[in-house]
């Protein structure tokens, strides 16, 4: 990356009181929304899990943009590239672990009843 690109990137990524205030307000609203959903029992089960995960991801993006000023750098966007790589590794580690351990738990389940096996494996006696 040329030094000119680095400097302009450095200067553009500085932020202002306004951007920090917007980020702060949005983050508080998203936090309270997530908290309210749980306390008010507005949703249950997997629906609640997906909504909470969605709110957390929106807040992640809000803070990346308004607090860490991501996306304001000029090309080439090295900060963004490293972030995308990290997100990819995080997804592989978290969802990969859950997937593998779920299978392992199934295969090591204490005394699986034959009706479960018949149902899950889809064969008939």
């Amino acid at each position: 990356m040329s030094s000119k690109a680095i400097v302009s990137q450095h200067e553009q990524g500085q932020g202002s009181v306004r951007s920090y205030s917007i980020g702060f307000g949005l983050s508080i609203a998203l936090t309270l929304a997530a908290y309210g959903l749980v306390v008010q029992h507005a949703a249950h089960g997997w629906a609640l899990v997906f909504v909470l995960a969605g709110l957390a991801i929106i807040q992640l993006m809000v803070q990346l943009v308004f607090f860490l000023h991501l996306g304001r750098e000029s090309k080439p966007r090295w900060n963004l590239s490293v972030l995308f790589f990290a997100v990819m590794v995080v997804c592989i580690v978290v969802f990969g672990s859950l997937w593998i351990m779920k299978n392992l738990a199934y295969n090591h389940a204490p005394q699986p009843s034959s009706s479960d096996i018949i149902k899950d494996e889809g064969y008939r006696q």
């Binding site: 205030s21 702060f24 983050s27 508080i28 936090t31 607090f67």
Partner: peptide, 12 residues
């Protein structure tokens, strides 16, 4: 969250 806001003001 508030401390994250004030640290931003500190950098400004």
């Amino acid at each position: 969250l508030t401390s994250s806001f004030t640290v931003g003001l500190g950098v400004l």
